[in-house]
Simulated assay, not measured.
Amino acid sequence: MSTPPGYFDTMYGTSADPWDLAGRWYEQRKYAVTLASLPRRRYRAGFEPGCSVGVLTRQLADRCDRLIAADRVPSAVDNAAARTRDLPNVEVRLLTVPEQWPEDTFDLIVLSELLYYFDDEQLRATLDRAVTGLEPGGTLVTVHWNHPVPEHVRTGPEVATAVAAIPELCLLSEVRDTDFTLQILMRRNDDGSAPRSPAQQEGLV
């Protein structure tokens, strides 16, 4: 069973930023590694479901012409919208994934600290949505906490195993930190070939 919605209502009911995303060095470091791992300097359109209070959202906005961020908790959406109010390229929506998903296509989808809340059925549905919504050559980012948590269905390495098995994706890079697992994957081209790496795109190899 997926983590019940009441868990998130309780967390945000006791604190505007229950995981201290804006203050913890752990989060700042993880975000820096995530951003440095992106294979493109710039993206046309990004999607970040589970954006919480928008700390990573604001940083992703610097790399995207347009960014849609979403969360299922109204107070989190309000805080994320306030945090990014001065950024005209950011839109924050109240969405519950995977049931609700933008109809747009994206060249960047970021699934950060989200997939471990889902049971097998919801995990498959979310990944199916992500693959369908990702353009050929587009980037899928997954990054998740490694340590067991009672409210989490799975750990970061378990999420990574499920994502790596998707045939439409190819793994560009992976960070196996003590505390989190980060994967950068790319949607295969229509002919099934792997997209060019950053070095290949610049003619270095």
Rank of each mutant, 00 (worst) to 15 (best):
Y31G: 03
Y31H: 13
Y31V: 09
A32P: 01
A32C: 07
A32T: 05
A32D: 11
A32R: 09
V33T: 14
V33I: 12
V33C: 08
V33F: 12
L35H: 00
L35R: 01
A36K: 04
A36P: 02
S37L: 09
S37G: 06
S37M: 05
L38V: 12
L38C: 03
R40W: 12
R41D: 15
R41N: 11
R42Q: 15
R42V: 15
R42C: 09
R42T: 13
Y43F: 14
Y43H: 08
Y43T: 05
R44L: 13
R44A: 15
A45G: 10
G46A: 11
G46Q: 10
F47C: 03
F47P: 08
F47M: 05
F47S: 09
F47A: 06
E48P: 10
P49Y: 02
P49E: 01
C51Y: 02
C51L: 03
C51H: 06
S52G: 08
S52A: 14
V53N: 06
V53K: 06
V53P: 01
V53D: 11
V53W: 01
G54P: 05
G54L: 06
V55H: 09
V55I: 12
L56Y: 00
T57W: 04
T57P: 03
R58I: 08
R58L: 13
R58A: 13
Q59W: 09
Q59V: 02
L60H: 05
L60W: 07
L60N: 08
L60G: 09
L60C: 07
